[in-house]
C-alpha cells in the first residue's frame, strides 16, 4: 500500500494552549480514514495544520514522501490537498458559479476547468440549478455541497472533510455520506472528521479516536464500531 499522508508526532499550540499533543496517523492512497473525537479534541486543529493554515510546534507532515509542515496553504492546495472547512465557509456575496471558480483558482487550463465544472454539476445537480444565486442564500445542506464542490474543483488527490454532516437533517446526511463514498470510489483519498461517529466509521476503511489532543485508539472502521469503549463514548452506549 502506498502511504499518501503521514502525520508524525504532531504538536500544535495556540499561544499557551496545547491543542494537539503528539498525534501520529497515516492515510494510504485510496482510503477513507476517519478521525473521531469529542468537541475540543483537536480535530479541526489537525486539519488546519495539514492544510497549512496553522504552523505546528513540532512534528512532521509527510505527503507523497515530502515534508509539507512548513508550507503555506496555497502551496499545499497546489500539491493536491483540499480542505472542506468546518462550517462550510462558502464565499458569501459570490454566486455559486463564482464560488466554484474560486475552487480552481490555481488551474490555468480552461478545458480542465470546464471539465471539472461538468463533473461537479453532475455530482451536485442542485448547484447547477442555483448557479447564479448568492452562496449566502443557500440552505445549510446546499452550502455543504457547494463547499465540497469547491474543493473538488481543485481536483485534489486528498480531500479533508471537517464535519460535513454538521447541522444537517438525516436525509441530507445520508446523501452527503453517499457522495463521500462516490468521491472516494472515483479515486480521491478522503480524511473525514466527524462527530457522527457511527456514520463515519461505517464508511471508513480505518479510523482513529482522538481525545484531548492525542490518539487513544485506532483500527479498521468495523473494529472501532464494535469496540465497547468507542460505543460507550461516541455511539451512545
Amino acid at each position: 500500500m502506498i502511504v499518501l499522508l503521514q502525520v508524525d508526532n504532531l504538536v500544535v499550540n495556540y499561544g499557551v494552549i496545547n491543542a494537539v499533543k503528539g498525534v501520529s496517523f497515516k492515510i494510504n492512497q485510496g482510503e477513507i480514514v476517519s478521525l473521531i473525537g469529542a468537541n475540543g479534541a483537536g480535530k479541526t486543529t489537525i486539519l488546519k495544520t495539514i492544510s497549512g493554515l496553522l504552523k505546528p510546534q513540532s512534528g512532521k507532515i509527510i505527503y507523497q514522501n515530502k515534508e509539507i509542515q512548513s508550507q503555506k496553504a496555497p502551496k499545499v492546495v497546489a500539491e493536491g490537498i483540499s480542505q472542506v472547512p468546518e462550517g462550510r465557509h462558502v464565499f458569501s456575496g459570490l454566486s455559486v458559479m463564482e464560488n466554484l471558480q474560486m475552487g480552481s483558482f490555481l488551474e490555468r487550463d480552461r478545458n480542465q476547468i470546464k471539465q471539472r465544472f461538468a463533473e461537479v454539476f453532475d455530482r451536485f445537480p442542485i448547484l447547477k440549478q442555483r448557479k447564479h444565486q448568492d452562496a449566502a442564500t443557500l440552505s445549510g445542506g446546499e452550502q455543504q455541497m457547494l463547499a465540497m464542490g469547491r474543493a473538488l474543483m481543485a481536483n485534489p488527490k486528498l480531500i479533508l472533510l471537517d464535519e460535513p454532516s454538521m447541522g444537517l437533517a438525516p436525509i441530507f446526511i445520508n446523501e452527503i455520506f453517499d457522495i463521500i463514498k462516490e468521491i472516494n470510489q472515483q479515486g480521491t483519498t478522503v480524511l473525514l472528521i466527524e462527530q457522527n461517529a457511527k456514520k463515519a466509521l461505517s464508511i471508513a476503511d480505518r479510523g482513529y479516536v482522538l481525545a484531548t489532543g492525542s490518539v487513544q485508539m485506532s483500527g479498521t472502521g468495523e473494529e472501532l464500531l464494535a469496540n465497547r469503549e468507542v460505543q460507550k463514548a461516541y455511539l451512545g452506549g
Partner: peptide, 10 residues
C-alpha cells in the same frame, strides 16, 4: 469575505 477559506483554495 473569508480570508482563511480564500487561502484554502490557493
Amino acid at each position: 469575505v473569508d480570508a482563511d477559506a480564500a487561502e484554502l483554495v490557493g
